[in-house]
């Protein structure tokens, strides 16, 4: 198998005035991901290379990078899929660079936090004091489940052309999560989120380029969530929004089934 050329962005604050590209040769093997290539470089060629990763299976959202000019998760990108021997890896755009390929995701987390991404329970009380679970139909679950798969990797923010020109634009991830909670029947915080999204840097700046949904590695479709959020906000201001019925806690189960006896042989003596 042919060797690969990794063109990797390097930047050391305090030493480099601007980022530059450095080339490494990495031996190809079947199933090699871009993250594997970077780990190979760090272990064998240059141990000063910095990048962030954790789960190596597209779950933690740590390894977002700009790979051949498209935001992707490095661990989720097999080199074979790129159809080229030259792989260019840069830090995720629209986020400040901490060092080499490590993007500072703080702006994302702060914007995410600012939209109240949790279930607000003004009428039903404190979530911690509930004694029974809530009932929810399959359809109600479907209305937000897709958006709940977000791993906060920031790829959508790197792809969004509006984020690239307005650093204060809330952006696809936070707005999508705002909608995810507004549409949850257990939540009563829609109004407060609408107010936050209805700002000069809020939901109306999304002009539906769809780049966020295309980049999302988890199929979350933030562009859809944002348009549904706009719809909810417009209908709410016209007093046409059908408010979801507040969720009711399930009745505690009156009788519990007797415990199944544990067979003797499974118990460690």
């Amino acid at each position: 198998m042919q060797d690969l050329t990794f063109r990797v962005q390097r930047y050391l604050p305090g030493k480099d005035s601007k980022p530059y590209m450095q080339e490494f040769t990495v031996p190809m093997r079947q199933g090699l991901t871009v993250l594997d290539g970077l780990i190979y470089i760090k272990e064998n060629l240059d141990n000063t290379l910095s990048f962030r990763s954790s789960c190596r299976m597209g779950i933690c959202g740590s390894c977002g990078m700009l790979i051949n000019n498209f935001p992707m998760l490095a661990c989720h990108t097999p080199v074979e899929e790129l159809n080229t021997d030259t792989i260019t890896v840069k830090s995720l755009p629209n986020f400040p660079i901490i060092r080499d390929l490590v993007a500072d995701l703080d702006p994302l987390f702060e914007k995410h936090r600012s939209i109240d991404p949790y279930i607000v329970m003004a009428e039903t009380g404190d979530l911690n004091k509930l004694t029974a679970q809530f009932l929810q139909s399959g359809e109600e679950l479907q209305s937000y489940l897709q958006f709940a798969y977000c791993v906060k990797c920031g790829l959508c923010m790197a792809a969004c052309p509006t984020v690239s020109t307005d650093e204060f634009f809330l952006g696809p991830q936070p707005l999508c999560q705002g909608y995810r909670y507004c549409t949850d029947r257990r939540d009563t915080g829609a109004k407060q989120r609408f107010e936050k999204a209805d700002s000069g840097h809020g939901v109306w700046l999304c002009h539906l380029a769809g780049a966020c949904s295309e980049a999302c590695p988890k199929g979350v479709d933030p562009a859809l969530a944002i348009q549904l959020l706009k719809r909810a906000m417009v209908f709410d201001s016209l007093r046409l929004r059908k408010k979801p019925e507040p969720a009711t806690p399930a009745q505690p189960i009156a009788e519990s089934k007797p415990k199944i006896e544990v067979p003797e042989f499974t118990v460690k003596q």
Partner: peptide, 12 residues
Amino acid sequence: RHLPNRLGIKGW
């Protein structure tokens, strides 16, 4: 202060 890396006009 980290290096800003916003794409700006080129990005849109």
